[in-house]
């Protein structure tokens, strides 16, 4: 019956230099957690957290997750000139051999596009750059001059040809992929399954709030606080929040309240409507979804942000438990999400 919270300020995990260690049996409020052990650090431009049910496996679990994320960054980052995703642009228009990791990540993104009728589309990379999000978000200027927008044909996910078995990808010339909408959730699922399978314990992996769980379920389930911005669970939430427990699959939240910047007086955020190449209308400040995987939860929550007022009927039709917080703070819950949660 203990909780260990660790936090590193460096992107490369170094368990020997962890900071912020709390008493093993309690968090900052003195609340007990049922035998859970966690570690947190920053990587791939976001906050990483891993929680395990077996204290003896925390170090190994953390190292495995760090390895997975390093490989993910090399394969999928659109901000690293040496990443595989960037390098394949040199062969645009031609079938190109890609790694199984990149193929699977792109496959996951295309699946998201397919299941949302193109709402979650990985071909928004160039539109994202046009709006100013062309580097790691921490380096994106908060303000800038008016944008010069050129109206052009919007690429679509159907133009991408992927043969996962052969490891061949064809991206039309001029199309730039952005896997940011799905890659974190997909990676959380993949790592949680791998770590639970190899270490034989319960695992929660959170990549910037895209959460996947696998293996043994702790008593009462995995307790997760849903809030505007992903943060330290031991620090009180800012804005509307709720506390829920899950025992399987994943939970993801998409939001228009983070990764915002301004150009020429227009407020931008990172969830684009692929049909306009412009940030989705802010009907919801957050949409949280529970699904059979973090990937599916993330696909649904992202699509809901883009669908705006049409999101509730679509989510209900999908049968996915969801919590939607409108811009004015009013909360809508769907498909079994607890209406009143602490």
């Amino acid at each position: 019956m203990s909780t260990v919270s660790t936090k590193s300020t460096v992107s490369t995990p170094r368990p020997t230099t962890l900071e912020g260690r709390r008493p093993r049996s309690q968090d900052s409020k003195g609340h007990r957690s049922p035998g859970l052990h966690s570690s947190a650090w920053n990587a791939i431009g976001t906050t990483i957290r891993i929680v395990v049910t077996d204290a003896a496996q925390l170090g190994s679990a953390r190292a495995m997750l760090a390895d997975d994320l390093a490989a993910l960054d090399v394969a999928c980052s659109r901000f690293r000139p040496d990443s595989e995703l960037v390098r394949i642009e040199a062969t645009a228009g031609h079938p190109t051999a890609i790694s199984p990791l990149l193929a699977a990540a792109i496959g996951a993104s295309l699946r998201g596009a397919q299941l949302t009728d193109g709402d979650v589309d990985p071909t928004v990379g160039r539109a994202m750059e046009t709006l100013g999000y062309d580097r790691d978000f921490a380096s994106v200027p908060a303000r800038g001059g008016a944008l010069r927008i050129t109206v052009r044909h919007t690429p679509q996910w159907q133009q991408i040809e992927l043969d996962e078995v052969a490891g061949l990808l064809t991206v039309p010339s001029g199309v730039r992929l952005d896997l940011g909408a799905t890659a974190k959730a997909w990676a959380a699922d993949r790592s949680a399954q791998r770590i639970a399978g190899e270490l034989g314990c319960g695992v929660l992996v959170s990549l910037g709030g895209d959460i996947a769980v696998a293996g043994d379920v702790p008593p009462g389930g995995w307790s997760i606080r849903v809030q505007d911005v992903t943060g330290d669970p031991f620090t009180p939430a800012q804005g509307p929040a709720c506390l829920v427990a899950i025992g399987e699959g994943g939970l993801a939240t998409s939001s228009t309240t983070a990764r915002k910047w301004e150009r020429g007086g227009d407020l931008m955020h990172h969830i684009l409507n692929p049909r306009t190449g412009w940030p989705a209308e802010s009907v919801w400040r957050t949409v949280s979804v529970v699904a059979g995987s973090a990937l599916d939860a993330n696909i649904a929550s992202t699509a809901a942000i883009i669908r705006g007022t049409r999101a509730t009927s679509w989510l209900a039709m999908q049968g996915l438990p969801a919590r939607l917080v409108a811009v004015d703070g009013s909360v809508t819950t769907l498909a079994g999400w607890p209406e009143v949660s602490s």
């Binding site: 709030g209 307790s223 606080r225 829920v244 990764r259 957050t286 607890p338």
Partner: peptide, 24 residues
Amino acid sequence: PSQLQAAAPPSNTNNPPVATSGAS
């Protein structure tokens, strides 16, 4: 797959959170 995979709905809990989910 023809649709997104569903899971059991979340439940209320009094356990302290071990993670948070929000924008990042």
